[in-house]
């Protein structure tokens, strides 16, 4: 069950690159055990040198950005491998929102499953936010609000405080995130439909569910602990 999310607030780290892939977000070195510290591994290939020491110049290692909550990136963020660990690494590090002009398909799905806000912004918005981030090497905090689908500078004393930028997210996803819905629970409301569908499919297309694959009964509720 996901916790409800309504806003994300904190420093925004800039990754002004397109096609940032999930191997870069979490290198396979951190995927060898079920219990690795993924937050530590976030962008591990760039964040540490060969001896495992932090690369000082890397944005997340700079003091102002160690607590970043937002990431701003260019086109096609999260391409490549389907590894959901990329999203877990971001979340475990503390990132609550990535803003980019576009996201890769599987990453986009994975993000929502973990209540990571993946907000799509116009290219102009990207450029404006990028310029703003570049002008603030000391780190600038932003507030992302899911109700209004806007991002704005958090500090009320900042002259830009009243300026806000829009981002896009499907309305249904926004609602699910605000409510903290569990998707599987939602799907299981259609249990009867699913069972009926399978019954129909397996009688109409017996070739797709041949007996040497499924045995006589494949329903888990009747066949626990079947061992092959």
């Amino acid at each position: 069950m996901n916790k409800a999310v309504e806003r994300v607030e904190g420093v925004m780290a800039l990754f002004a690159r397109c096609d940032i892939n999930t191997d870069a977000i979490i290198p396979s070195t951190w995927l060898r055990t079920a219990s690795a510290d993924l937050g530590k591994g976030l962008f591990g290939g760039d964040r540490y040198d060969e001896q495992g020491n932090e690369v000082e110049s890397f944005v997340l290692n700079r003091p102002a950005f160690r607590q970043s909550r937002l990431i701003l990136a260019d086109e096609n963020f999260g391409c490549g491998s389907s590894r959901e660990a990329a999203v877990w690494a971001l979340v475990q590090f503390g990132i609550g929102c990535v803003l980019a002009p576009s996201f890769a398909d599987i990453f986009y799905e994975n993000a929502f499953k973990n209540n990571l806000v993946a907000g799509i912004i116009d290219v102009e918005t990207y450029q404006e936010l990028k310029t703003l981030a570049e002008a603030h090497p000391e780190g600038l905090a932003f507030t992302v609000d899911l109700h209004s689908l806007t991002v704005s500078v958090s500090d009320a004393n900042n002259p830009l405080h009243n300026r806000s930028w829009n981002f896009r997210m499907p309305a249904s996803r926004v609602q699910a995130m605000i409510r903290g819905n569990d998707e599987i629970t939602g799907t299981l409301h259609h249990q009867v439909d699913i069972a009926d569908f399978y019954k129909m499919a397996s009688s109409e297309k017996q070739w797709l569910f041949p007996e040497h694959l499924i045995g006589r009964d494949t329903d888990a509720s009747n066949k626990k602990n079947r061992v092959f």
Binding site: S82, R83, E84, A85, V87, D105, I106, E109, N110, K113, N114, E183, I184, G186, T187, L188, H190, Q191, I194, Y198
Partner: peptide, 22 residues
């Protein structure tokens, strides 16, 4: 269809996927 781990869990539990049609 390549999926993430949450979707793996979804399929394990329901044998279905909820997807926007590409």
């Amino acid at each position: 269809i390549g999926v993430g781990t949450s979707e793996v869990e979804h399929i394990l539990a329901t044998q279905t996927l909820a997807l926007s049609k590409p």
